[in-house]
Write a protein that binds this DNA or RNA. Structure first.
Lengths: 360, 360
DNA sequence: TTGAAAGCGCTACCAT
DNA sequence: ATGGTAGCGCTTTCAA
């Protein structure tokens, strides 16, 4: 197929070692020899065989990324940021999608480990101490994003707890005294045993926020149309009977655990004849780009997704360079997934800000 | 790090070859020997070194995917479909993003080739005969998606031309007699020399559609807010003066070259006080999922994105298996990018359908 | 400064 | 049915 070092060596009448010295800028070679070899290599359009180099050096310059899916802009944007950061440093990414399936995730991780990736960035679906042991036994640097597994692995995410908590005060300051929280269905997720750390932190942040303000907690646990409609109907009723009893004058808002929910609620409001923000306030999480094209502009929490991706790679890069695998300086904690699974020193937290908006 | 065939051979007191036979289900090995070896391998948690295998076999079981970006749901969904199809067949994907940049794309392709990917799926940014030669010299199977390069490479895409043309009649049948087309700015793209085959086909389809119906062609060449506003203002004016002169009673619609534009127009209509579909009809292209959450439901052309991804991989898989690289049975055509660059036998066309909707 | 050769872990082929 | 061994293309070490 393509020319090898051996062939170049033969043509130049030198040894393979010398060709290697020329090609890879090592010292211990005379300038003229080097130039001649480089010249020949160029003429023959020599292309190094990455594979052979990997086998010889034990490094692949490839990191594995095990992500949930590519449908959610949140994930795909993150992957894009990781790819950019990786490529800048000369790394490739092998992408595997787990589709929120624990088995697929594990199989993927195993494949990647066998392939000898230098490091792993995980959007964990699984969790638990057994899982941690498995990962540690791989003996390669691992960084988690989004869901957290344990303090054994550096974790990068927006500070979901803090930002949601702040979002509650933010909404409250805009004059809303009833703030509901629209979220994924925890029971369903938990029955499947999947890791929902990120959503747990978000919800916990909301809960802390309303508690601090002395407001009522109202969590809509699942985002099917019926559940949303149930909630909206209260507002619709209130609106239609506004002349009758002016007692319940509370301004209501819904904080959503991710943007798509806010978009959905917005549309359902429109269908139901509710005006946003006149009849109901709305706020999302992630501030994905499509919000810029939707009227009215929904407030959202801007998680600075790009920087999560970048930091995740940078962290991993550090570990890879250090040869200092995460496992080396680790306390042997078996850490289960639960709401007490909070940030540690091994966690990196990303700044956030509130987007501009008109819906509150 | 991990156990090798050699170690297992030593422990079992057999040769490496025998271990290989056991591990890889080859024949020419006694059942008991095999079982014993497998047993030991399991105990030692043997994991095959993919890299070494690749080097020995010359196959990597990896395909390279050079895509534009991951921000557009259209692309990320496609990548997701490719990943699924690939994994099912035991292939990995190494993902490189070109960001619509010709240099990045070329660099990426070169990297992938050196890495010995077994095949390449390209969302081409570049084009032209020189590019074709470069790709052919790589000597690996290549399939293009989205933008086409030349008939030298199998190409998979929705039938943009046909579907856009049909979309025009579809809109017309709904009673609209003025159908504008909102598109990317061709001049800008062309001045950068990038491949816009897919958009060219879409626009050509629109043009053919209006021509066939004897309607006026109205192309909005660029989707900045001003350009869109320019067009909407005509409708706004018409609406406000509707009582004065009832002469221009034409029902207007805008066909958009991709969904995000339709979403944007919808919002701008809302801001401008125009009702959709009462004052203006709207239709998109791709039918991305977010449309389901937006009210009113925008009509769109459902390109069956998943099947594009699947077919692209299947096509590539065929080429890889055949060892029958695309270059082998090729006429040496230098094919430039232009609107005459139409489908050939080497092209696969994907079925499409119109989504349900309420905006027309 | 250069050459020679031993690996990396696996596959594949030829003997036996 | 099994053993032995020569590669794959590169890096790395030791000798000259």
């Amino acid at each position: 197929m393509s020319v090898s070092i051996k062939e170049i060596a033969k043509i130049c009448g030198v040894s393979e070692g010398t060709v290697d010295r020329a090609l890879n800028n090592r010292n211990g070679i005379r300038q003229e020899t080097k130039e001649k070899i480089l010249q020949v290599a160029k003429e023959m359009n020599y292309q190094p065989n990455h594979l052979a180099r990997c086998l010889a050096t034990g490094k692949t310059n490839t990191i594995g990324v095990v992500c949930i899916n590519m449908q959610d802009t949140f994930f795909s944007t993150l992957v894009e940021a990781i790819e950019a950061a990786a490529r800048e440093k000369g790394y490739f990414i092998t992408l595997i999608l787990s589709h929120n399936n624990i088995e697929e995730e594990l199989a993927g991780i195993k494949y990647l480990a066998n392939r000898g990736v230098d490091g792993l960035i995980l959007f964990p679906v699984a969790g638990g101490s057994e899982y941690v042991s498995t990962l540690k036994s791989l003996n390669i640097p691992i960084v988690t994003i989004y869901n957290r597994i344990s303090e054994d692995f550096p974790h990068i995410d927006v500070n979901s707890y803090e930002s949601m908590k702040k979002a509650v005060s933010f909404i409250h300051e805009k004059g809303y005294d009833s703030i509901a929280y629209l979220d994924i269905n925890f029971d369903m997720a938990k029955s499947r045993g999947i890791n929902i750390y990120s959503f747990e932190r978000r919800r916990a942040g909301y809960a802390a926020g309303v508690k601090e303000l002395g407001l009522c907690e109202h969590i809509i646990n699942g985002f099917g149309r019926e559940k949303i409609m149930d909630y909206l109907s209260v507002i619709i009723d209130k609106k239609s009977s506004v002349n009758d009893k002016k007692n319940d004058a509370s301004k209501r808002a819904i904080l959503c655990s991710f943007d798509d929910l806010a978009i959905r609620v917005l549309s359902m409001c429109r269908e139901s004849g509710l005006s946003v923000p006149e009849d109901i306030g709305l706020m999302g999480f992630n501030n994905q780009r499509v919000l810029d094209d939707i009227y009215p502009r929904i407030y959202s929490i801007d998680c600075n997704i790009d920087s999560i991706g970048t930091k995740a790679f940078d962290k991993l890069y550090g570990l890879m360079k250090a040869g200092d695998h995460a496992q080396s300086n680790v306390k042997n904690v078996s850490d289960n997934i639960d709401s007490d699974n909070v940030a540690t020193d091994n966690d990196e937290v990303i700044e956030y800000k509130f987007s501009d908006g008109q819906t509150l």
